[in-house]
Write a protein that binds this DNA or RNA. Structure first.
Lengths: 351, 351
DNA sequence: ATGAAAGCGCTAACAA
DNA sequence: TTGTTAGCGCTTTCAT
């Protein structure tokens, strides 16, 4: 009569029958073994093994109303920066009951608005966003969401929780390092013009403001970043600003491009031109000369962001809701003819 | 009485009541509007808007037995190669009702076995795997899975469907290009020793076999790849094999590292040393000199792999279940003192 | 500590 | 074309 479909796989009722207990006892034995007497627990566990029983997640979620999805919205899936973050996220989530659902906003605020709404309707257990610059619509929409939210990458006022660092401070430290090395005509190269990039530009300006008589020399494109882009931009810059002696790049792609352009033109780095990047991609250390840069522990940032969400989901108290993960200025050969050693100037309050 | 919990958000019953129809009619109006008369459809759509109704996905899946999850298992989330594939996957899936669930096997067969079993128990709608070298356990386990499976990266005998190219042929073509340029003492650099890397090594050997009197000079490490690793490996190679005049690298990271090592040692590329990489990462084209390499359209591979799965899920017939996506040897300055133009030698059967 | 009954929100089956 | 009924597999409520 009413068999309908039935997935074919064993249900909790099958386990209960085999173990000679009620279905609810099986359910308890799975979720909180302490609630069940040892004898029944053993019988149930054996029945589970024998039937090869695996709980149906959809049914669990439907019955309990507890989602197991953590929504993750990132501006890019290709950029190495986010690849590292993603790795940290997955590593932290792997041993838990939660799953990651990734959305790619493509650096577009509109796409972010769309995806936040889309994902929020699915009632995720939690949400992770990149940056602090969501649209007003999204901010207010999320402000009274019932799930925990963490924003990564930047340090500042978050909707709920946040972990990151000040890109402005980091860039200021990088440019200050150039100044300390004796460079005086320092340019800034940027691409994509996303919020982090613009804050780094601001940091560059602040550092230059402390250098009497120096005036900003900036070249930014809204186009995506890349090594080739860095090379082209720097080439363009060299053609117009002939007297610059150093360049602060908004990321390591651009910095490597600038280095290549110097090689192509026979400009000696670091003697005639200092170069510093941002992000400390793996390639930066291997370049000739090794490229100075700013390091942020992105993997750890991803891990800790998920950790903060998990703490909240488990009802634990999260220590600091807004964490400054800090940064390190990595001094390499590209910014000093004399000091070729790798040394680091640690920033950060957050530990 | 029995109110229990209730999520608070409107249900299909609320919509049905407001529209004055049965719940199933609302269900039909959502899934296949053609089944419902225009008048009811309009009333229902208005009710949905008014209540801000969004279907509960978990309930849909539970009731229909139709999962909306496509499981994707990749060996790395950080490697640019897979980042491009992931982008293709997400772009293709975005407009559908399906979601991606990613697992990171970390180049470990054991971890792949574990994750395949874990994901398979969740009854995904489909599964995407990387490579053809799954364990025998996993292959036979998946051979009678009821969901479609696609294996990407390589061309060859797949469990169900596959799209990729022959890495052996591709590497052979790359090395043959070196030979055509006049290089005679050609070494091979490899890292990670994953299946694709070993097939590229095999292609190198095949190409050398066609060169009378040439004997393989190989240096492979099981350690992960990277620019720094490429530099270190090539340095090691140069210290022992002093008379090589070209190096075929298993990927572009290694190739860039080799180039940097040449720069550090004052070895002229391409005059004294030819270098060719694999994958055509963005940086390869911007290097000085630009690095020759082998291009595989990874983004497209990801897209088409998902396309094949979607076709099957929609009951469409998939044209070819095993697709050769081909490769291009990209000739750049690093392999020819005379020919600095970028030209491509197209391979590929699959279009 | 254990169980019976109800129902989470939806859709397949059957009927009208 | 539309509705009624049962039930997907699990967990909550309430009772013992």
């Amino acid at each position: 009569m009413k068999t309908r479909r039935a997935s074919g796989r064993p249900t909790i009722a099958d386990v209960a029958r085999l173990a000679g207990v009620g279905a609810i006892t099986v359910s308890r034995a799975i979720r909180d073994p302490n609630q069940v007497s040892e004898e029944l627990r053993n019988r149930i566990e054996e029945a589970i093994r024998e039937l090869n029983y695996v709980p149906n997640v959809q049914a669990q979620i439907l019955a309990s109303g507890q989602s197991n999805v953590i929504a993750v919205l990132l501006p890019s899936l290709t950029n190495s920066v986010y690849a590292d973050v993603i790795r940290g996220i997955y590593d932290k989530v792997a041993p838990t009951r939660f799953h990651i659902q990734i959305g790619n906003t493509r650096y577009s605020e509109q796409e972010e608005d769309r995806l936040v709404a889309l994902f929020a309707w699915q009632r995720p257990a939690a949400m992770l966003l990149a940056g602090l610059d969501q649209s007003e619509t999204t901010r207010s929409f999320l402000a009274d969401a019932e799930f925990p939210i963490v924003q990564i990458m930047e340090h500042g006022p978050a909707i709920d929780m946040g972990i990151g660092c000040s890109h402005k401070d980091a860039a200021r430290a990088a440019v200050t390092h150039l100044i300390d090395c004796g460079y005086r005509r320092i340019a800034f190269l940027g691409a994509r013009k996303d919020p982090r990039m613009m804050r780094r530009r601001d940091g560059y300006r602040e550092a230059l403001a402390a250098l009497p008589g120096a005036k900003p020399i900036e070249l930014l494109t809204p186009e995506p970043s890349g090594v080739a882009r860095g090379r082209a931009l720097f080439s363009q810059l060299l053609d117009t600003a002939t007297d610059i002696d150093a360049v602060a790049c908004g990321n390591d792609d651009l910095a490597l491009g600038a280095l290549f352009e110097c090689q192509a033109r026979g400009i000696a780095v670091p003697e005639q031109m200092g170069i510093i990047g941002f992000n400390d991609l793996e390639m930066a250390a291997a370049a000739v000369p090794a490229i100075s840069t700013v390091r942020i522990d992105r993997y750890e940032m991803g891990r800790r962001a998920i950790g903060m969400l998990l703490d909240r989901l488990e009802g634990k108290k999260v220590g600091e809701p807004i964490v400054d993960i800090g940064f390190d200025v990595i001094r390499r050969a590209s910014t000093s003819a004399v000091d070729q050693g790798v040394s680091a100037a640690r920033s950060a309050k957050g530990g």
